[in-house]
Computed example of a mutant assay.
Amino acid sequence: MANNVQIFIGKIFCIFQKAIVLTGGYNYAGIKGDMRVYQPFVEFDDEYSTTRLSLISGPWYDFECVQAGWAVNPRTYGDRETRLFAYWTADASNRTGCFDMTCPGFVQTSHEIALGAVLSPISVIKGLPWQMNLFIFKDPKTNNLWIRYEERINIGYWPPELFGSLCHGAAAAEWGGEVFSSKLERAPHTGTHMGNGRFPDWAMGNSGYFKRMRILDISLNLKLPDWMMSYQDEYWCYRSDYVSDYIVDPEFYFGGPGRNDMCP
């Protein structure tokens, strides 16, 4: 099982950095979780920061993936607001895939919630912990991959024709944060934040987090994963902390400031 997982946590391009918790080795029909919503600092217009959940299938060099969460993405949206987003690719982002509906693929069905919408309110340090719940799941009749918002609104779906194996089930599921930049793994490192720019803070909850993490198995049972593993690309820049001891429902904390004294 461990060998299967490595194909998903290996770095695809040096311009992406992750701090995630993942599970793999089975066939997953969905992924769900509560994520805290922030407005992180994004240093340059060609960078972005996201908090998202993902379903993935295929080898690292040619994987299929769907994601949903929130993002600060100046290039896509023209501002630094925190927005609801979705992303897909069928070939490791080599030739296919895009955010929201900036290319053909995702089918919007909801008239209440739109991809790309500004999210409000936003969590602030020592303030109320605003969060949202998202659920990506496969319709067993059509094989459409749906996004559900806050337990009740089906935003829309990716049709199965976009994918090869993913529409029949994913081999891995991920929760966590991601930063995109050309200024990673070298000095000067980007100062773009992940989460709210703080390293994981499980004691006070003042960092990026996921709670109530669930997978939908191929028998359509919504449950805790059988096992989970945390991972980060650059420990001194962005970190991850999976907390499972002495609590009934595991929690995942992540984030970081990017450039700092230990990440020059």
Score class of each variant (00 low, 15 high):
183 K>D: 15
8 F>W: 06
174 E>M: 11
189 H>I: 13
158 W>G: 12
66 V>D: 03
159 P>H: 13
4 N>G: 06
80 R>T: 10
107 V>Y: 12
41 F>Y: 14
240 S>Q: 04
164 G>H: 11
205 G>K: 05
107 V>D: 11
129 P>T: 04
141 K>S: 08
185 E>R: 12
138 K>C: 13
36 R>V: 10
123 S>H: 03
81 E>D: 13
182 S>F: 14
140 P>M: 02
107 V>M: 15
21 V>M: 11
49 S>L: 02
222 L>A: 12
250 P>E: 09
200 P>L: 12
160 P>T: 00
13 F>T: 15
227 W>H: 11
36 R>N: 05
247 I>G: 06
152 R>F: 00
246 Y>P: 00
230 S>N: 09
22 L>P: 01
166 L>N: 14
146 W>M: 02
4 N>I: 01
166 L>C: 14
115 L>G: 09
88 W>G: 04
81 E>K: 11
45 D>Y: 14
95 R>T: 06
125 I>A: 13
181 S>F: 07
137 F>P: 00
207 S>R: 08
77 Y>C: 09
87 Y>I: 04
123 S>C: 08
80 R>F: 08
105 G>W: 08
110 S>Y: 11
128 L>F: 11
216 L>F: 06
21 V>R: 13
84 L>S: 07
196 N>D: 11
98 C>L: 14
244 S>L: 06
1 M>L: 08
153 I>N: 07
216 L>S: 04
217 D>N: 15
55 L>V: 09
